[in-house]
Structures are given as C-alpha cells and as structure tokens.
C-alpha cells in the first residue's frame, strides 16, 4: 500500500442472501485522484459506495478511508466524505438557501459561517438567481447543481458521486464534469465517480475501474487498459471501446 492511498478495501464482499452483490473487491484510490468507477447497472457500484460510507455492513472483508474503519468511525468518515446519491432528494417545500442551511447545520457549521458559504456556493454552481425559489420548481439540472452544493458545503476531502449526470442534458452534463474536475484541481478533492457517460469519464478521470457482476475486472489508467486489451498500437482507443471489450469477455 502506497503512502498516499487513502481509500482501501480488502476482500470486500457483500451478499444479499445467496446473491453476491460485491465479490472480493480490492480497491485502492490515491489522494487527489479522480477514479472512474464503471460497470453495468446492478454491478455493485452503489453497494460498494455504501459500504465505504458505513451505511451498509460488509459480509466479509474491510474498508478504510484515511485509515478509518467506516463502521466504527462512522461520523468521522462522514465528515470527510461527501456523498451525492443517484436521484438525490430534497425537501420540496424549502428553497435552495433553506435546504443548504439544513445541511450546514447538520454538519455543525455555525450560522454566520454557513450563510457566507451558502452565498459563495450558490454563485459557484450558478443558482444565485434561484436562491429563494422553492425546490419543487427546480429542473433536473438545477437539482443536480444544488445537490453538489449541499455535498461540498462541508469541505469534504473525498467525493462519492453516483451517476451524477444521469438525466442531464448534454450541456448540463458537460458543466457538471468540468465542475468536478475543477473541484479536484483547485480543492484537491479525491473523487470516486460512477457513471455511464464514458466519454465524459474518459475526459476527467486519472484512473478507471470496471466492475461487472460484483467483480473488478479491470483497474488502471486508460493507456494501461488499452495496452492490455489491444496490445501496443498507434491507434488511440476510446474508453468505450475498452469497456465493450471487457464487457463482452464476461
């Protein structure tokens, strides 16, 4: 294990009855990386993220984030990690500021500090003009912007993003991916990004892992995966080609 590995799982396994959701997963993510977490629906990506957050108990094996066990040090881990779930939900009758205030309060940020932060964050995600609008009037794109603002209000060291661009229009998706890349660059946040939008993932991630049926079938940089599958060649392979190659194998 390298010194700068901050997320580490050892033989992490989750079973639901006889069905194995995550099978003997050994994953390590280094500090400052964007790790693209790929795989078909139901491959066990969300379950892995939940186990890393301590929200789900592994059947076997263990996980650690910054050396902390998510099950035993749940609050400490949740202080470090911001999690944006797939289909993030909001209290529909609150407005953007109230919603952010609630999350800030839950994180123990005091009132004045929170108000300053909220102001900056709304500016950053481009919701400044909709700050006092009720969330039930928000579009999908605005919800996702508010979702990411809620996640980074606690200044996390790690971000878990589960299908963040699902259902966004192309423009929104590009904005979102650029925003994540800027968070990674400017704030040195490590990102674990699960997505089906392969070209976007290719653009911003440093390393990808492909998970199929609970197993990690590939893990490495884009070049090393391409070399492994296609041999050394002049041709540049896209992530999509690499992904399909792995997918057809299983």
């Amino acid at each position: 294990m390298d010194a700068d590995t901050i997320i580490q799982t050892v033989n992490l396994t989750k079973r639901y009855g006889k069905q194995v959701a995550v099978d003997d997963l050994n994953l390590s993510v280094k500090e400052g990386e964007i790790f693209g977490f790929l795989g078909p629906n139901g491959a066990g990506k969300t379950t892995t993220l939940l186990m890393l957050l301590g929200l789900s108990q592994p059947s076997e094996g263990s996980a650690s984030l910054y050396g902390l066990d998510p099950l035993r040090k749940a609050t400490e881990v949740k202080r470090l990690v911001g999690y944006l779930p797939e289909n993030v939900g909001f209290y529909e009758d609150l407005d953007a500021i109230q919603s952010l205030e609630y999350v800030a309060n839950l994180n123990g940020i005091n009132k004045e500090e929170a108000l300053g932060k909220i102001d900056k964050l709304l500016e950053l995600v481009g919701l400044k003009n909709d700050a006092r609008k009720k969330i039930n009037a928000f579009s999908r794109g605005m919800r996702q912007r508010l979702g990411i603002a809620e996640v980074i209000i606690k200044d996390p060291k790690i971000l878990f993003l589960d299908e963040p661009t699902l259902g966004l229009d192309p423009e929104g998706a590009i904005w979102f991916m650029d925003f994540i890349a800027s968070l990674n660059r400017d704030r040195k946040i490590t990102v674990l990004l699960s997505s089906h939008n392969l070209s976007q993932v290719q653009k911003i991630s440093h390393r990808v892992g492909i998970m199929i049926n609970g197993k990690m079938v590939a893990d490495g940089s884009m070049e090393s995966l391409a070399r492994e599958k296609f041999g050394v060649g002049d041709k540049e392979y896209s992530l999509e080609e690499i992904y399909m190659e792995y997918f057809q194998e299983v």
């Binding site: 990690v81 993030v88 939900g89 909001f90 529909e92 999350v103 839950l106 994180n107």
Partner: peptide, 18 residues
C-alpha cells in the same frame, strides 16, 4: 416519506449519529 423523496440517504450520510 423521507425514503420516498430520497432525503433519508442524504440525512444519514451527514456526520450525525443515525
């Protein structure tokens, strides 16, 4: 209701005890 609108997972992934 929190489960249905997807806010329960958000709540429990904050640094508070469940």
């Amino acid at each position: 209701r929190e489960r249905a609108q997807g806010t329960l997972i958000k709540l429990v992934s904050q640094p508070i005890y469940r």
